[in-house]
């Protein structure tokens, strides 16, 4: 039997989708600005990366808290696997993003370097995985 969700539930899901859009966009943007920095040694690109990663981390952190609460609240619901995958991807994204924020606080070339670019790519991939799981709707389906 399928349960209908009300307007409040729909609005909550929409808001969560908007929240998730920030880390997806910001962490992906940081990959592009990291590459731009490594190609030009123009510090402004590295500064863009640093801000993108920091703000991505703020929104991503809020999303992670929401995901963990939803996981706890929905412990007995059927479709736990997508929720677990989503929360795990978000957690990985936040951990890598935090390390990457520190990496990008180093000076000049060390603010990016090979390690910074790898961290940026992995963080962006984790963000994309988390968002794809969420946007696919798999987390919201009830068990058959």
């Amino acid at each position: 039997m399928r349960r209908q969700i009300g307007p409040v539930g729909r609005a909550t899901r929409a808001a969560y989708g908007v929240l998730l859009a920030f880390p997806v966009a910001l962490f992906s943007f940081a990959v592009a600005t990291d590459i731009a920095y490594l190609r030009t040694a123009e510090m402004q690109w590295s500064n863009f990366s640093a801000w993108s990663i920091t703000v991505g981390l703020v929104f991503g952190g809020v999303a992670l808290v929401c995901a963990l609460l939803a996981l706890l609240a929905g412990l007995r619901s059927g479709r736990r696997a997508p929720r677990l995958l989503h929360a795990a991807a978000l957690a990985l994204m936040c951990l890598l993003g935090l390390i990457n924020a520190f990496k990008h606080s180093q000076d000049a070339w060390s603010s990016v370097g090979a390690f910074g670019l790898i961290l940026s790519i992995l963080t962006a991939v984790a963000a994309l995985v988390a968002a794809l799981v969420a946007y696919s709707g798999a987390m919201n389906e009830e068990a058959a």
Binding site: E42, M43, Q44, D107, A108, S111
Partner: peptide
């Protein structure tokens, strides 16, 4: 104007 040129 910087620690080690990080302002360009």
């Amino acid at each position: 104007n910087s620690n080690v040129g990080e302002r360009g």
